[in-house]
Design a binder for these strands. Structure first.
Length: 710
DNA sequence: AGCACGCCGACT
DNA sequence: GTCGGCGTGCTC
């Protein structure tokens, strides 16, 4: 009934809109327009009863147009914003295809939401605000720190070769200075070039942001360095995005999301702490920003530097000699800058310690001595709360969460039982809810209890000035309120704290100059984990933690890293004691070769969430059956399927969260392209399985390509 | 994802 | 009698 006036100028365009992967509607929709808009143009389009942001993908070739009465007209173009360039579009396409997401979802998630609601008038105002900042640069900072020989060699290699590079530098080897000078060289030699610096979590590494600002703002103006991370307000995000898109930002500093920043003159990407798991998303589009950085650098013709003291085994393996098939140039910087020495690692055999000792007597003694000398200690325990579970010895009751298949954690501080998965909390019962027994007891310990325990053990110990020992705890609970993390860290820096107790969140980034003793209370769990990447993460964490000690050269000489373990002779700890990542990596790679695990195979995981465990598993099994029995009959698919292993559907480790049952299924292939091809074809099967009767109650499913934890 | 329509429980 | 819960369905 709708009247359409087609002029001879009318073109049909495929436009990307934000529709999720599960929607029956695709994410590439056809609209008409009287102007030939180039790919990458930002537009506003009608979609149902609303108007939304769209991105021109390409012109529609007449053959596959939807019925004409469905096609609506583009409402307007976002004036004043240049189209996204071809490389950016290629990045989006690759990401969508590789991670099995719709292209519209990837593209629109990569753009600032605020673009959507913005009116042309606001846009003009916004653009004027960010237009070139004429404040002339302050006096150029000519005082670039002198590089060590190792740093100079690494920098020279980066200059001479095209990369990609793996900067393998031990904690404190001065990787950041190499990044800074590589960026400096680029930006001064090429007046329009842009660099992208990625960090795992920006609030944990504020000093990196500070160093970049301090170094480059005086040279290129304060607009030259912008940050991009999820902590920005929508308006700040829009602003950063526009400055980068217009080429005015020379340096973009950000978290994983920054990999999608529009950078028309991108020539260098740095991925700091490239092994960090937070580069791989665990919700929505589960992309690895590190892997995308390698791809993006390739298509942009840019250099990329991956930096780490404990590289991911994937990157490490890729940086083997070229003669053995390596594709990344390894640059090693083994020495610590200055006089700082890595702490001596001491392993305590907990089998030979008093039974109930949380802290072995020798460690307690060492802590005491440090405090009496006015030095600081840092103690790790990977469990927050007071005790991971409450228990009634009479009837066996445990503090289970009613909504999850997990125990609720006892938090003594507010006498609550809290579920760390769904957040459900209430006050601790006075007596056992099942049998009325008054005597319900905590089992195990968390950081809260460790803090209390230490306070009791050290109550008689005095600091050099005769005052009592001060203990601070830093974990997700103590830093819930905005700014409290900064406050607590400041207290540590100011020397107001003698012992810092915390979860792994204190291991990252922060330089505490007066800490001379670091201890891990109970790190063994990762040795027995069902996740084959757990040892890799543990090694990295412990090495990073060790790096917190002895940063002050005058104290560094006798700093220590203590490990309490029931397996003190485990090869992981032996390698750690020797600060020998290559040996550790070789052991791990050896095991992985034999077991055919990444990087010697490619993996994907399908996760299903449903009202019942049966329907979640039924869905996965149906998809598996179809892959095993139907897909081989598809024309030309048998050779692909021969290379794919599909394991059985199993409940996830935490089977139920917030009353939603979860199951998963692992897929493996020695060939990455085969796995890719399989997944692409399998999508339609998964969509079809959803409609089966046995799958009633299925809520959602998702494919996780290259899962980082299983 | 939005946004609407649609049919059942406790409140101005 | 309405307000509002979220189940189901549609969007070029």
């Amino acid at each position: 009934v709708q009247k359409i006036n087609l002029t001879n100028h009318t073109v049909f365009l495929q436009i990307l809109v934000h529709t999720p992967a599960h929607a029956s509607l695709g994410s590439v929709l056809t609209y008409r327009c009287d102007t030939r808009l180039p790919p990458g143009t930002l537009v506003r389009v009608p979609l149902g009863k609303r108007e939304t942001l769209g991105l021109v993908w390409q012109e529609a070739n007449g053959s596959e147009l939807p019925t004409e009465d469905k096609i609506r007209a583009v409402s307007g173009v976002l004036e004043g914003i240049a189209p996204l360039n071809a490389q950016w579009l290629q990045l989006i396409q690759f990401c969508a295809q590789y991670y099995q997401r719709s292209i519209g979802e990837v593209a629109l998630n990569a753009l600032p939401l605020k673009l959507k609601g913005i009116t042309p008038a606001q846009m003009q105002r916004r653009l004027r605000k960010v237009s070139p900042d004429k404040t002339s640069p302050n006096k150029p900072d000519t005082s670039e720190p002198t590089l060590t020989p190792e740093q100079s060699i690494a920098l020279a290699q980066i200059t001479q070769h095209t990369g990609p590079f793996l900067l393998f530098g031990s904690t404190g080897s001065g990787k950041t200075e190499v990044y800074l000078q590589a960026v400096h060289n680029l930006l001064t030699n090429k007046p329009h070039a842009q660099a992208l610096i990625m960090v795992p979590e920006i609030n944990l590494t504020p000093q990196l942001e500070y160093r970049f600002l301090a170094r480059f703002a005086p040279l290129f103006g304060s607009q030259a360095v912008v940050s991009m991370h999820s902590g920005l307000t929508p308006v700040q995000r829009l602003k950063s995005w526009l400055v980068a898109h217009q080429g005015e930002a020379r340096i973009v500093l950000g978290t994983r999301m920054a990999i999608f920043a529009s950078l028309p003159q991108l020539q260098l990407i740095v991925v700091d702490e490239e092994h960090d798991p937070s580069y791989k998303g665990s919700d929505g589009a589960r992309y690895s920003a590190r892997d995308l950085a390698l791809f993006r650098a390739k298509i942009e013709g840019a250099k990329v530097i991956l930096g780490s003291a404990t590289p991911s085994l994937e990157s490490w393996h890729s940086s083997r000699p070229t003669s053995e098939g390596g594709r990344i140039v390894r640059l090693a910087m083994p020495s610590r800058v200055g006089q700082g020495v890595l702490p001596q690692v001491r392993r305590i055999d907990m089998r030979h310690q008093p039974r109930q000792a949380v802290i072995a007597p020798p460690l307690l003694q060492a802590i005491t001595e440090r405090i009496q000398r006015g030095e600081q200690c840092m103690i790790f325990l990977n469990r927050r709360g007071y005790a991971p579970v409450l228990h009634c010895a009479d009837c066996g009751w445990k503090s289970a969460c009613p909504h999850c298949s997990a125990f609720r954690v006892f938090h003594k501080i507010d006498r609550s039982l809290r579920c760390h998965h769904c957040g459900f909390a209430d006050t601790v019962p006075r007596a056992c809810p099942d049998c009325g027994n008054i005597d319900i007891t905590p089992i195990g310990r968390g950081t809260e209890q460790l803090e209390e325990h230490l306070a009791a053990l050290l109550s008689q110990v005095q600091r050099p000035d005769g005052s009592a020992v001060r203990i601070a705890r830093i974990d997700a609970d103590s830093t819930r309120h905005k700014g409290s993390l900064e406050q607590q860290l400041a207290a540590v820096h100011a020397g107001e704290v003698d012992i810092l107790v915390g979860t792994q969140m204190i291991a990252k980034g922060h330089d505490f100059r007066r800490i001379t003793l670091v201890a891990a209370i109970n790190p063994d769990n990762a040795l027995f984990s069902s996740d084959f990447r757990a040892p890799e993460r543990l090694f990295s964490l412990l090495l990073q933690a060790a790096g917190r000690a002895g940063r002050d050269a005058s104290l560094g000489e006798n700093s220590e890293m203590w490990i309490q373990s029931y397996q003190p002779d485990h090869p992981l700890y032996a390698a750690l004691k020797a600060y020998d990542y290559p040996t550790f990596a070789a052991q791990q790679l050896q095991e992985r070769t034999q077991a055919g695990m990444p990087p010697f195979s490619a993996q994907a995981l399908v996760r299903a969430e449903a009202r019942s465990q049966e329907s979640a598993q039924a869905f996965l099994q149906a998809a598996r059956d179809a892959a095993l029995h139907e897909m081989p009959h598809w024309e030309g698919w048998a050779p692909v399927l021969e290379q794919i292993s599909l394991y059985s559907a199993v409940p996830m480790t935490v089977q139920r969260i917030a009353n939603i049952e979860r199951a998963q299924m692992l897929l493996e292939s020695p060939s990455r392209p085969a796995l890719q091809q399989f997944l692409a074809g399998w999508q339609s099967v998964l969509h079809a399985c959803r409609k089966l009767d046995a799958c009633k109650g299925l809520i959602r499913w998702a494919i996780d390509v290259d899962p980082q934890s299983i």
